[in-house]
Design a protein around this nucleic acid. Structure first.
Lengths: 159, 159
DNA sequence: TTGCTCCTCACGTCACGTGAGGTGGC
DNA sequence: TTGCTCCTCACGTCACGTGAGGTGGC
């Protein structure tokens, strides 16, 4: 069984063609730590089949204007900085910035935005709509990725 | 009364120092259409006092990774493109992308995210938290701007 | 005159790739 | 041999400014 999994590993050319990006791009992403291949005896990089979805996820995140270095952090699991970079509170460690925490803050603030007295200024309405629209697209992206990114293949019946 | 308002107009140097940016930056923003001064008889640009807050708003939006050309669009009131650029649905004109519309989509999707089965994968949790965190900061920014951006001075009692 | 403005050309930095070229092992 | 890989140096583009310099009117 461990044998079987090893046979699935991909070299850069194969991964690039499945993910529909150039080898050079896979190389570049690997250099940035976005992809973490193992190495073959002959020093070839060996990627997981799931790295195809990982690349798709990276592209989706890039499309949302998230920088590659932050994508690397998110994929690696270093959550903390996200809030700090944008807000720079600076004081205590406070909350560990969990998914649930963000979701409740988001709920509360959306409510606050609804409770706002009617905004009449044209430009201001545009800005608010733009920001809320962006937030909405981010959440939509989260939903899509929660579906695509999970290593579902491992749990699929052999069929 | 019209006389009084004219006296409040600012030239580039004054605006730059109040907004705490360089003249060059005000010049640059003006060239991009982010600021729309009138002109004096001597061809000097004349800015509104409210442009100080406008610049503050621009900086806040920039800090969220929003490009200057899109900020210009938002401030000018061309809302439509936001959703299209990120999604590229392409079909019909559909909804006019209102603030209310985005808010309800957002609510619905946040709920969908809550309803998700527990995500166990470490990296995926990080990505979701990162996206929701970003969305949360955007909404927080919207709240701040709704407060700062409104031309409140015009409606303030003379004191 | 002094200080401020106008405008334009060019340079600098950062993120994100992309090209090219020489290398070595399957 | 062929095709693929490795790695590195350099160039290209785009967004966002910033510097410098010559101009003219208050």
């Amino acid at each position: 069984m461990a044998e079987e999994m090893t046979e699935d590993l991909l070299r850069i050319g194969e991964l690039a063609s499945r993910a529909e990006v150039s080898r050079r791009t896979v190389d570049f992403y690997t250099g940035l730590g976005l992809l973490v291949p193992t190495r073959s005896g002959g020093n070839f990089r060996l990627y997981q089949p799931a790295d195809v979805q990982r690349i798709a996820a990276i592209r989706r995140l890039e499309a949302q204007g998230i920088r590659l270095d932050e994508i690397a952090r998110l994929l690696t699991g270093e959550t903390e900085d996200a809030a700090r970079a944008a807000h720079s509170e600076g004081s205590g460690p406070a909350s560990p910035a969990t998914l649930e925490g963000y979701l409740s803050s988001l709920d509360a603030q959306v409510q606050a935005l609804r409770d706002l007295p009617e905004v009449t200024d044209h430009g201001t309405r545009g800005v608010l709509a733009g920001l809320v629209g962006r937030a909405q697209v981010l959440i939509a992206t989260a939903l899509i990725l929660s579906d695509e990114l999970l290593p579902g293949a491992e749990f699929l019946p052999p069929l």
